[in-house]
Amino acid sequence: MTKLSFLDLASVRINETPTDSFQQSKQLVQQAEKLGYHRYWVAEHHNMQGVASSATSVLIGYLAGHTSTIRVGAGGIMLPNHAPYIIAEQFGTLDAMYPGRIDLGLGRAPGTDMMTARALRRDHQGADDFPELVNELLHYMSPVDEERLPAVMAVPGADANVPVWLLGSSTYSARLAAQLGLPFAFASHFAPDQLMQALELYHRNFRPSSYLQEPYAMAAVNIVAAETDEEAEGLSTTLIQQFLSIIRGHKHKMRPPVAMEELDWSMSEQMMVERTVSARIVGSEATVREQLQAFVEKTRVQEVMVSTPIYDVQKRLKSMEIAMRASK
């Protein structure tokens, strides 16, 4: 059986608000827990009308509060946007509220455009200092000597039981995760080009640590599952429109599916979108099972993070169920 987890951006649909999105995310995380998904992550993005997961740690607390067993975490926190001390306090607090259920994935991009990055009031030279930021965060979350307390201590945060992951869409974080002995997750759901290179580099250079004795890798994949291949292909046009909007520099809310022939895109745009979403699995249960098995055999990942950008919430819940059956 392939271990499945779930990625959510708290997508905002046309004519809806973030309030609606959070209610839908509550349904999704409860479904994920019921079906046996291992973890449920939300990602930090900013200044995007269709994404409501900007206050990531707050949303994690909300979702963890409406579940009881599933791991809930960040996939991820864009660390250059924040002081590591604050993140240690936030996730230490979450761990104190929901012991043993919180994950912290870290990314080095701002998760937004440069104007919004400036509005975040952080020096985005910080992306170049990502290794130092990660080490600082790990320091604040490490155990303390009660006899010699540090001058600056994260409370809560110190000695928190929160696994720290490094996330990436290139080889940079793969190399750093290997060096630090941390688990690694690759964002092949939107940047598949360097997937195999990053995973090979991570496994080859991994150093055992107090965090992890053996390498542990996960890859994110778009999975759109339905009763038939034809229905799934139709539902996947929401994903296509999503990336077409990004390529054009738009920030639209999530759009309903359309007929494939109604997609208004140039040949170059089509090639760009197809390349961006090449790591996708679309189809019936049998098709998903075959393609998921092939993906796991190719990558040798221990876990697959499923992104399911389907407009209709009930169909999204159904896709989650089909994907889980297909993983067994």
Rank of each mutant, 00 (worst) to 15 (best):
D193K: 14
L182A: 11
H203P: 10
A151Y: 11
P143R: 02
A226F: 04
A191E: 12
Q197C: 10
M218Q: 12
F206Q: 13
A158V: 09
S169C: 07
F190E: 01
A198K: 08
L195R: 09
L167D: 13
A185H: 00
D159S: 13
D193N: 08
N222E: 02
A187R: 00
S209T: 10
D193M: 07
W165D: 11
L195I: 06
E231M: 08
A232V: 00
R204W: 09
D193V: 12
L199V: 06
D145E: 07
A178T: 07
G181K: 05
A220M: 02
L138G: 05
R175P: 04
G181I: 02
E214M: 07
I223P: 00
S188L: 00
V152F: 14
L176Q: 06
N205F: 11
Y211I: 05
S188N: 01
A219N: 05
W165R: 02
Y202K: 09
L176R: 09
V155W: 06
P192V: 05
G168E: 03
E214S: 13
A158I: 08
R175Y: 04
E200C: 07
L212P: 14
S209E: 13
V152M: 12
A187D: 05
L166Q: 08
N161A: 12
Y140G: 15
L212A: 12
V224E: 01
A232Q: 00
P208Q: 09
L199T: 05
P192Q: 11
L182I: 09
R175A: 15
T171V: 15
T171E: 14
A226C: 04
R148Q: 14
S142I: 02
A220F: 01
D145R: 03
Q197K: 14
V224D: 00
S188A: 14
D145W: 03
A154P: 05
R204E: 15
A187K: 04
G181C: 09
A217M: 03
A160I: 04
L166P: 13
F190N: 07
E214A: 15
A174E: 15
E147K: 06
W165L: 09
I223S: 00
V162C: 07
A219E: 08
H203S: 12
A160T: 02
S170T: 11
A220I: 00
V224F: 00
D229H: 02
P215R: 07
A177N: 11
A174I: 06
S188C: 04
A187S: 09
A174G: 10
P163T: 08
S142H: 07
E227S: 14
P150A: 03
A158T: 06
V162E: 04
P150D: 03
H203D: 15
M218V: 14
V144I: 15
T171A: 15
P143C: 11
Y216I: 01
L167E: 13
M141R: 04
E230K: 03
F206I: 11
G168I: 05
E230V: 05
S210E: 15
E231N: 01
L167Y: 07
Q197D: 15
H203C: 14
R148K: 13
G181Q: 10
L176C: 07
T228I: 06
L182H: 07
Y216E: 13
R175M: 12
A160K: 02
L138V: 13
D159T: 06
Q194C: 13
F206L: 12
A187W: 01
Q179W: 02
L138I: 08
A232N: 04
E147M: 11
F184N: 03
N205V: 06
L167M: 12
Y216Q: 11
